[in-house]
Design a protein around this nucleic acid. Structure first.
Length: 677
DNA sequence: TCCTTATTAAACACTC
DNA sequence: GGAGTGTTTAATAAGG
């Protein structure tokens, strides 16, 4: 019974690596970096920028001033402004009569003080022109350390001042309207937050520009006391809205926040934390005492839908991938959405594809960002700074999407528990019968790296691996130290490595046997344990087709392999653009996991193999392969050469004691000349 | 259209 | 005889 894939639903073909969380984190970082710099100037207000420019201008006009003096001057200015701010705050809090003027003054002064410390004063480029890179770095590190120290002291002073203020206000609470008190506290607190954010942005800018390498101890220092890192200044009013209610809760919250600001030990995450760290969240206590988590506006806004709009609706048509159905109005669109894109296999599959697209794009973004950093580091003629993107991009289980769908991981360090949409069982995702996996393993990532990266995924997700049986069998055999496996061990490897083969009918066992017998690359060896199967690497590579990597057709194939006919061209292009550069990128490999998956093949690179010298015209009985090893002279691409450099013989079991009887050697000297059936 | 490859199913033989 | 293993053939799908 040939149940073919007319109704086959999509299979998730995880490829490449991911890191939604980490990438998003990095994207956030970069976003706050570039945008943060502008934001620092923008939110600081005109005064800040003006003052900063004035100082810079004065510094520039003073051609005699040395860079060290410049830095010293900046620091002195910053300290002076901070002191002024403290004085103004103290006076403002102690004299409640002129709240407005004081607040307005402080609102300017705080950003100014931060702007004074920002690189706007003297741009990195300017500094680089003056100083040599080592000097520059040393100076900036020194400056940063000084600023951090000053800021710590400053925060401490503010903390004390705040406590004094609160005590004073509690005593004079009856004489002062609580609303005014709360407002003033909030304004002060906002300024504090702004300062911290701007400081962070400044440091981020420096770090991203490669001018400051944030040391771990620095990262764990005062910066860690800034859990509001991701909160934009513009979010603050809203952020505080819930806490700004008059009364004791507001005071408590302010007090608590104030304590958090300067607390030496806090569980807040540093902005320099690994990318896999979830986006910084602001924890607050609601007036009712119930803790809540305030996410940055960036996140919340992405989910917000303004009335009359829908993320999937635009320009009068449905933006569902591959749909583009025209809808006159939102109501019609909603109706269309509910009818055409309800929760079913197709929509689920489309959603999964979309997730893969997004993940691939994010991976691409990460890699491009890393490349940019490397380029910048190179152009600055200084050693590369620790790259935030250099660490393996991983997806943690915490990155599970709320939709509960399967999320293909992209790293071996990505434990993913496969989930399914409610109401969709395993069969719903693979109900289409046998899949034709043709050529999928030829243009996808190297099977070894793919398996290394997605080991956990395949192990847990009921997703058919995008490799041929031959590739999988070979991989199973080559993963073993002896490069040999019994049939049962091959079965076990399949079931151990792939949930798909655990949960699906055992037709694949027949296929495995069939492939073992069919392909000459699999050599049956009799030993004391019985019959074991080994891989004749030369034969395996011999049968591989020419290089196909990167072909647009293959891109299309890959997508068609997902059995998702509704993908439109742009969708496919996005997937293609995002997938292939990464799939073949060695940088995406997990070294630890690939170490056990050494062998690469033409599955991996798809390179044509130079025909091997053959002196035989008939296929000999397939017995012991090791005698091939000394003959292997395959012209290969570097990746292939890597493969050949792996320890032990290329072909067959390295353990002579387990190889076939010596008399088999004579038979094996001749090469099989016939091709596969 | 033809060829090749991959997949699946099935029949058959052999061994334990 | 049944299970496991191994071989072979055939049908089908898909891509070149």
């Amino acid at each position: 019974m040939m149940v073919e894939s007319a109704s086959e639903t999509i299979r998730s073909a995880p490829s490449g690596q991911n890191g939604v969380g980490s990438l998003s984190g990095q994207a956030d970082g970069s976003g706050s970096s570039s945008g943060g710099g502008a934001g620092a100037a923008g939110t600081a207000g005109g005064g800040a920028g003006r003052d900063g420019r004035d100082v810079a201008a004065s510094a520039d006009s003073n051609g005699e001033m040395s860079p060290a003096e410049l830095l010293h001057f900046q620091q002195q200015q910053a300290l002076q402004v901070a002191r002024q701010f403290l004085l103004q705050q103290a006076s403002g809090l102690s004299s409640p009569g002129n709240n407005e003027s004081k607040q307005s003054a402080s609102a300017v002064q705080v950003p100014v003080s931060v702007a004074m410390m920002s690189p706007q004063m003297l741009t990195p480029q300017q500094m680089q022109q003056i100083l040599s890179p080592p000097q520059l770095q040393a100076l900036l590190q020194q400056q940063q350390a000084l600023m951090l120290q000053q800021l710590q002291e400053y925060y401490k002073k503010q903390q004390e001042q705040l406590h004094l203020q609160l005590l004073t206000q509690q005593q004079a609470g009856k004489q002062q309207p609580k609303e005014a008190l709360g407002n003033k506290q909030l304004a002060f607190q906002q300024q504090l937050l702004q300062m911290q954010q701007l400081q962070q942005q400044h440091l981020l800018n420096l770090q991203r520009q490669g001018l400051v390498s944030l040391q771990p101890n620095q990262a764990s220092g005062p910066l860690q006391t800034l859990p509001q890192a991701a909160v934009c200044p513009t979010d603050l009013p809203q952020l505080w809205k819930g806490e700004g209610a008059p009364g004791q809760p507001a005071e408590d919250s302010v007090k608590q926040e104030g304590l958090d600001l300067t607390g030496a030990a806090t569980t807040a995450t540093s902005f320099a934390a690994p990318p896999k760290v979830s986006p910084p969240l602001s924890h607050h206590t609601l007036p009712n005492g119930q803790p809540t988590v305030l996410t940055p506006r960036r996140d919340s806004s992405s989910h917000e839908e303004t009335p009359g709009s829908h993320p999937l609706y635009g320009h009068g048509e449905c933006k569902w991938p591959g749909c583009e159905t025209l809808c006159e109005d939102l109501g019609q669109f909603i109706k269309h959405l509910n009818t055409e894109h309800a929760l079913d296999d197709r929509s689920t599959a489309q959603c999964r594809v979309q997730m893969q697209v997004v993940q691939q794009l994010e991976i691409q973004l990460a890699k491009e960002s890393e490349r940019l950093q490397a380029m910048m580091a190179h152009l600055h003629m200084r050693p590369s700074e620790p790259k935030p993107f250099s660490q393996p991009v991983t997806v943690s289980a915490a990155d599970s999407f709320p939709d509960g769908l399967v999320h293909p991981p992209t790293s071996a360090a990505a434990p993913v528990t496969p989930l399914r949409p409610p109401g969709l069982g395993s069969a719903s995702l693979h109900s289409g019968g046998p899949a034709r996996r043709r050529s999928s393993d030829k243009f996808c990532s190297p099977i070894s790296s793919e398996l290394a990266q997605n080991h956990e995924f395949y192990k847990n997700a009921d997703v058919r691996p995008p490799f041929t049986y031959a590739s999988l069998i070979r991989q199973a055999i080559l993963e073993t130290p002896d490069r040999q496996l019994t049939l049962n061990e091959i079965y076990n490897w399949f079931t151990r490595m792939f949930a798909y083969f655990r949960r699906n009918t055992a037709t694949w066992k027949n296929a495995v046997r069939h492939n073992l017998s069919l392909h000459k690359c699999f050599v049956r060896v009799e030993n004391v344990k019985g019959a074991v199967w080994t891989v004749d690497e030369r034969e395996y590579q011999k049968r591989r087709p020419p290089k196909m990597t990167g072909s647009p057709t293959l891109v299309k194939n890959m997508i068609s392999g997902l059995s998702y006919g509704a993908l439109n061209a742009s969708y496919q292009a996005a997937l293609a653009e995002s997938s292939f550069p990464l799939l073949n990128s060695p940088g995406m490999l997990n070294p630890s996991s690939t170490s056990s998956l050494l062998p690469l093949s033409h599955d991996d690179v798809g390179a044509p193999v130079e025909p091997l010298p053959s002196n035989g015209s008939s296929s000999p009985p397939r017995l012991s392969p090791p005698q091939y090893s000394h003959q292997v002279q395959v012209k290969e691409e570097p990746a292939e050469a890597e493969e050949d450099r792996r320890p032990g013989p290329l072909l067959g079991p390295p353990n002579p004691s387990t190889t076939g009887p010596p008399e088999d050697r004579d038979l094996e000297e001749e090469l099989p000349g016939e091709e596969l059936s």
